[in-house]
Structure formats: C-alpha cells, structure tokens
Design a protein around this nucleic acid. Sequence first.
DNA 1: ATCCCGAGGG
DNA 2: CCCTCTGGAT
Length: 208
Amino acid sequence: MPEKLLSTAEARKVLRAINEMYPDAKSELIWDNKFHLLCAVLMSAQTTDKMVNRIMPKFIADYPDPSSLAQASITDIEHHISKIGLYHSKAKHLKETAQILVDKFAGQIPEDKKTLVTLPGVGEKTANVVLADGFGVPAIAVDTHVSRISKRFHIVPQNAKPLEIEKRLEEILPKSEWIHTHHAMILFGRYSMTARDKEDPYSYLKKQ
DNA sequence: ATCCCGAGGG
DNA sequence: CCCTCTGGAT
C-alpha cells in the first residue's frame, strides 16, 4: 500500500516549526574565505563538523590558497586531515580540486552548481553548501539530517533520492527561506531528532 | 550496491 | 561494542 505523505501545507507547517526552534541557525563551518569553505565542506563528508573545525586552522595556515594546496604532497595533506574519516580519498580530492582551480579558474571558486560538481570530491550536497554559505545563493543541501527529517515526517517517500528531496523541499518553501530552513534542519537533526533517537517525530517539535 | 574511515557518543 | 557523522566515486 502506498505511503501517505504530508500535503504541501502540512509539510510547510512542520518545516516552519523547525525553523522557529532555531531562529539563529547558521552553519558551524564558519570559514569566510570561499576556498577555505570549499575545503572544509569537502572534508565534512561522513564526519562531524566539530572534527573538521578542529583541524582547519593548521590546514589553512599551511594551505592558504589553491596553489599552495595543489603543490602539496598527498602524504602531507593526509597528515593534516588524518583525524577525520575517509582521509585517503579526501586528500586526493583536495589536491586535485586545488589544481583544477588553479589551472581553469584562476584560483577562484566557481559560482554555479554545474561547474562545482565537476570538481573531484564535490557532489550535489557540497556544491549546494558552497553556493548557499559562500555565495548566498538560495539552495537546500540534502545531507543525512535533511534526508532523515524529511522521511520521518513523511514529507517525501522513504526511498526518495537526495535530488527528489531537494526539489520537494524547494517546492514547499519560498526561496527566501531555503538557506535558513536548511541550517535549522541540520541543528534539529543534530541536537533534537537524532538518528538513534526514534520517538514520534512530532514529539521533538513540542519540546519547543 | 559497495567502498572509504577515524573520532565520539550511547 | 555498535551506530553515526552536513558524501562522493566507482
């Protein structure tokens, strides 16, 4: 039997309730430099941003710009990021991406998604975070939290793919609310309705 | 569908 | 011990 999904109005109500729980929600990856932000987001896959923030200061000090990172050895980069998960592939992707930024984009970070996702290690989610947090372009990055929340509240089907979730959320909310709702969902998922904790989703909303 | 992959929390 | 973390490439 088909799964019952929330109507657009119902879904909007849930999302706005989450929004109101975190009026000041913003990314915890607070790197204002776009290159640094791109590196941090690329590193953050399957890793807590707390860990990323812990290793970033030394990383930035040694690799302040794309050319310095492009020239670094994989081994050196791995030593910088060895405390986060998936460090082998991340080091490779960081170096390759830095080299492409130097060769093709004059060391600048591209501002459109189609170009961003061509960079090694940059997928849909990472590109959206860079666009939203780096350039202020409205976008909803679908990560583990956004995906889990959307499914537990039945805003999307349980088997929905990330791109389908993104489209549905963007359809429910006005563009002006995309970035903030994304950040609010992250905090809601991280600190309130966690992956392990599986009570009735609506009970988390009532805890103010 | 599978692999990568260390740190931290429960 | 087991699960999870703002995924992406193959």
